[in-house]
Design a protein around this nucleic acid. Structure first.
Lengths: 223, 223
DNA sequence: CGACGGCCGATTGTCGACAGTCGCTCATAT
DNA sequence: ATATGAGCGACTGTCGACAATCGGCCGTCG
């Protein structure tokens, strides 16, 4: 009962809690590629038994953040630039084109207001130089739209891909885009959603995600 | 003891065993969308405890074959045509383009011979009208190449996507392509791999996978 | 007669203990 | 010195039991 604290479990199962904590530890870089993950140690540190820890580890393995070998434990994995550029980003484009298209008809005024709120917060975060908060808002923007698409699998796959993308940009990729630009781009995306033209939306989504890798030093933050 | 180069007899863990059985039951249609999966029943039926069953269920959940709700159990899911055409197949194309490209330089003569063997078997299976066997060979062909790409995540994601694609074509999609055509197409793919021109390979992969959904009655079998 | 609220069975979430496997160390033999 | 292999820890894989939660049943009350 120290370090990474786990207190109550109101609505989040211990398994999800553990997964969340480890995901954060890995994507932030506090746990580095090659680090070993010992179930009993994690369980003790998080104040649970091994069962939830094991299930969380399996989840992270599915997400590609760690690898585990029978009877020999788990270790944190790195993410290669090749994989991000040629696999993860194209998959994200596929998923989000589909999801944004499905969501277009379903977004309520309240949803659009919520998205606008996120973009406004992005501007604040950008101004204050709060990169982490900016990245969180970025993720929440996309996740909200995908959720509204009501495509269960799509959201699930997105959540599976996302942590690895974020781990890359947060940990392995040095350069980042101009924070103000991130906010501006999401404003554009939101404006296009408001306009409601499907083809325009799909195109905007593709360019928005693609832009992560285009220019010189490669990506900005996630999203 | 026996010859050299003996292969490990992994005697896969109970968890993998359970996952395999359930995956087969679901993709074959023996378990239908909406069917409930009770951990204790499955454990009893498979002669294990609930722990491996739970981990297997989580895996199937990640693969999108089932959904589970806290304290309320799991149920088998269906796969929509929209999702297959707009999400799963494009993702497969992304994954396989990447993997085939990476594998191109690494395929040995032995690998190419093995692939030719699979194609030959496809012809036999097609002639004998053994659709299941044909689909298995199809999967093994693709999986072998992706394995040779040595892209761990890529193979893993492919294995995650694949069962749902197969479930769709095996269970939800009525029409199938001409079996002989499946064999012929893989022969073409193999010939292109032998030729070794990257751009030609990438293009062939894309067309090969895409062809599942193009023409008249939609898809053939998987792969 | 219908709404409310507590009981009950069914099933999942979690735990602690035991068994199996792996890699390493170190004595032993060559 | 090198190779061999038994022994030893350190973990993971699996199990059976217990606790928590959900949904429906049923009696009660308005």
């Amino acid at each position: 009962m120290s370090g990474l604290g786990l207190r109550r479990v109101p609505s989040l199962s211990r398994r999800e809690h553990v997964a969340e904590i480890l995901r954060e530890a890995i994507t932030s870089g506090r746990l580095k590629p090659g680090d070993r993950l010992v179930e009993l140690d994690l369980a003790a540190e998080l104040g649970t038994s091994r069962a939830p820890v094991r299930e969380a580890l399996r989840q992270l393995e599915q997400e590609g953040l760690i690898a585990s070998y029978p009877y020999r434990g788990s270790e944190v994995l790195g993410v290669s630039q090749d994989e991000v550029e040629q696999v993860l980003v194209p998959i994200r484009i596929t998923l989000e084109r589909f999801a944004f298209g499905k969501a277009l008809e379903k977004l309520t005024d309240a949803d659009l207001d919520a998205l606008q709120g996120l973009v406004d917060d992005m501007l604040v975060a950008a101004g204050a130089g709060e990169a982490e908060r900016l990245a969180d808002l970025d993720i929440r923007f996309h996740e909200l739209v995908i959720t509204r698409s009501e495509q269960r699998h799509c959201l699930q796959m997105w959540k599976t891909i996302q942590p690895r993308v974020r781990a890359y940009f947060r940990r392995d990729a040095p350069a980042h885009a101009d924070p103000a630009d991130v906010a501006r781009q999401h404003q554009e995306l939101l404006d296009v959603l408001r306009a409601g033209d499907l083809d325009v939306v799909l195109d905007a989504v593709e360019r928005h995600i693609h832009i992560h890798l285009t220019p010189p030093g490669a990506g900005d933050d996630v999203g």
